[in-house]
Amino acid sequence: MDIAEPLLAAHRARFAEVDALLPPAAPPAEGERLDAATADGTRVTGVVQRHRFAPDDVPLLWSAADTWQLFPYFGDTGTEGVDLLLRALKGRLETEPTGEDSACVVFWPSRDAEAIRAFLDHGLVPLGALGIRTAPPPAAGPAAAVRRAGPADFAAALELATATFDYTGLVAAPRRANTADLLAPSLRAALAEDEPPVWLAEEDGEIRALAHCAWVDATPGSEAAELLPPGRWGYVNNVVTAPGERGGGFGRALMAHVHRELQRGGATGSYLYYNPTNPLSSVFWHRQGYRPLWTSWEVRPAAALR
Rank of each mutant, 00 (worst) to 15 (best):
D2C: 14
E5N: 15
P6K: 09
A10G: 06
A10W: 01
R12C: 10
F15A: 10
A16F: 08
L21N: 13
L21H: 06
L22G: 00
A25S: 08
A26H: 08
E30F: 14
G31Q: 13
G41C: 06
R43H: 09
T45C: 11
V47L: 11
V47T: 12
V47K: 06
F53Q: 03
F53H: 11
P55L: 13
D57T: 07
W62L: 14
W62Y: 12
D66Q: 07
Q69D: 12
F71P: 01
F71R: 00
G75R: 01
D83E: 11
L85F: 05
L86Q: 02
A88C: 10
A88T: 02
G91T: 05
G91F: 02
T95M: 06
W108G: 03
A115T: 04
A115E: 02
R117W: 06
L120F: 15
P126M: 03
A129K: 09
T134D: 02
P138I: 00
A139Y: 04
A140H: 08
G141C: 04
R147I: 04
A149W: 03
A157M: 03
L158Q: 06
A163Q: 04
T164I: 08
G169F: 02
G169S: 08
R175S: 09
R175P: 01
R176M: 05
D181W: 04
D181K: 13
L182F: 07
P185L: 08
L187E: 01
A192V: 13
E193I: 11
L200D: 00
E203P: 12
A209R: 01
W215A: 05
T219C: 12
P220W: 05
G221W: 09
G234H: 02
G249Q: 06
G249T: 10
F250I: 08
L254N: 00
A256H: 00
V258W: 05
G266P: 00
A267K: 01
S270A: 15
Y271C: 03
N278F: 12
L280K: 15
L280M: 15
S281M: 10
R287M: 12
Q288K: 03
Y290C: 15
L293G: 03
T295F: 07
E298L: 11
V299G: 03
R300N: 13
A302N: 03
